[in-house]
Computed example of a mutant assay.
Amino acid sequence: ILQEYSEITLIAWSMGVWAASQIMKQYPSLPLSQSIAINGTLYPIHETKGIAPAIFEGTLQGLNDQSLQKFQRRMCGSIAAYKAFQTVAPQRPVEELKEELAAIQKQYLSLPPSDFAWQKAIIGKNDRIFLPDSQWLAWSNKVDSLEYAEAAHYQAELFDNVIMQIN
């Protein structure tokens, strides 16, 4: 399907940055005009360039309805943003989310690192999931443009601004 496009802008967020990198290495001839990574890295589970393995494992093992709400509040950065997120949040069972996190962990640990080159990375200064210092370590000298934004891990306005800039 992607082969039919004459120009593609790739925008990925959070764990999607790693996932998109894995997919894109399989399609090196796609006509990418831009690639933008937002609040994620090529190393989703990494001591210094992603989410620390102990934190990831603790999140995975302790995930339940209550801890998911706590995670989402941290992800959004404020109560108001959390309430807004709840109006668009996917309604998925916690067990399904746990399976997804376990699959990400298994694949990340078994696949070779991707050499996909992102053009731009945006780091939320208030990201409490992928810490800003970890993102900086992961991206410094690896992207053409590295930007900081006054944003939490998930912030709808950040995504809106990125989309407006590419249009």
Rank of each mutant, 00 (worst) to 15 (best):
W118R: 09
I45W: 04
A89K: 11
L10Y: 02
A149C: 09
I129Q: 12
L109Q: 15
L101F: 14
E99G: 14
G124R: 02
L30G: 08
R92A: 15
E57R: 09
N141M: 11
F130K: 01
A80L: 08
S33M: 08
K106L: 15
L42K: 06
Q61H: 08
S6G: 12
E7D: 12
L63W: 09
Y148R: 12
I79Y: 07
Y148A: 13
Y148H: 12
Q135M: 12
S21E: 01
T87L: 13
D133N: 09
I104Q: 00
A54W: 10
W18M: 02
I51N: 04
A84P: 03
A103M: 11
Q3A: 14
E57V: 07
S145A: 12
V143F: 05
K83H: 09
G58E: 05
I55M: 08
A80P: 01
K49H: 11
Y5A: 13
S6A: 11
M24Q: 07
A20Y: 06
N39R: 08
L111G: 07
I129R: 00
Q91F: 04
K106Q: 15
I55Q: 04
S21T: 05
S21Y: 02
E96S: 15
Q91H: 03
S110Y: 03
D65W: 01
S114P: 01
A102C: 05
D65H: 12
L30H: 05
P113T: 10
Q22S: 08
L60I: 04
L146F: 00
W13R: 07
T9A: 13
T59K: 04
S21W: 00
Q72W: 06
Y5I: 01
E96K: 08
I38T: 06
Q61L: 15
Q86D: 08
Q105K: 13
P90V: 10
Y148Q: 14
F85P: 02
Q135E: 05
K49S: 11
Y108I: 06
S21M: 03
A149H: 08
L10I: 07
F130W: 02
R92F: 10
A121L: 06
L60F: 02
I122C: 09
E96D: 13
E96V: 10
S33R: 13
E47I: 14
C76P: 06
D133M: 11
V143D: 00
G58I: 02
Q34D: 11
G77I: 02
D144N: 14
K106H: 15
G62N: 11
P44S: 08
P31K: 05
A84V: 06
E7S: 13
S6F: 11
S21D: 00
E150A: 07
A20M: 14
K25I: 09
T87C: 10
I104T: 05
A52R: 12
I45G: 00
A138N: 03
P31M: 00
P90Q: 12
E4V: 10
W18P: 02
